[in-house]
């Protein structure tokens, strides 16, 4: 029974990893690749570490597997955010069919700080509601 559950977690985790790798190859631009690899990759690695914890059923092993999952869940979103932000500043081209780039022109090229959209500045300056 333990072996059945472990094998289930291993295969499902490996399948999610493969979905992540497929997304990495097939997706057309950087943010979509980040989207595919970060979530599916962390889920796959986490499920495989759950399989390790189930298989051994030992306190020390389970604690270390939980630590690995915790580190993955803490670090992967931060790393993906940093890479995506850096890629946006470097000017990585977006997909040709991208409908809108909401951040375009809002970032200061020198200081990398984000400005408010001009409509919001206007409406806060005069209290009249905009028609």
């Amino acid at each position: 029974m333990i072996e059945l559950i472990t094998g289930f977690f291993l295969v499902i985790g490996a399948a999610f990893m493969m979905v992540a790798a497929l997304g990495l190859v097939r997706m057309p631009d950087l943010p979509m690749r980040l989207h595919a690899t970060t979530k599916a990759g962390v889920l796959g690695a986490g499920l495989m570490m759950v399989g390790v914890a189930v298989y051994f059923g030992d306190g020390g092993v389970t604690a270390r597997a939980v630590a690995v999952i915790g580190f993955l869940l803490l670090t992967a979103p931060v790393a993906a955010h940093a890479i995506g932000r850096a890629g946006y500043f470097v000017g990585v081209p977006l997909w040709e069919h991208t409908r809108s780039d909401e951040l375009k022109g809002r970032y200061d090229d020198k200081t990398h700080t984000l400005a408010s959209p001009p409509e919001m500045n206007e409406s806060s300056a005069d209290d009249e509601p905009r028609r």
């Binding site: 985790g13 992540a20 790798a21 990759g41 690695a45």
Partner: peptide, 13 residues
């Protein structure tokens, strides 16, 4: 980064 995650999976197996 994905390759690092894959290596974690290999280590688990």
């Amino acid at each position: 980064e994905l390759i690092a995650s894959l290596t974690i999976g290999f280590i688990a197996v």
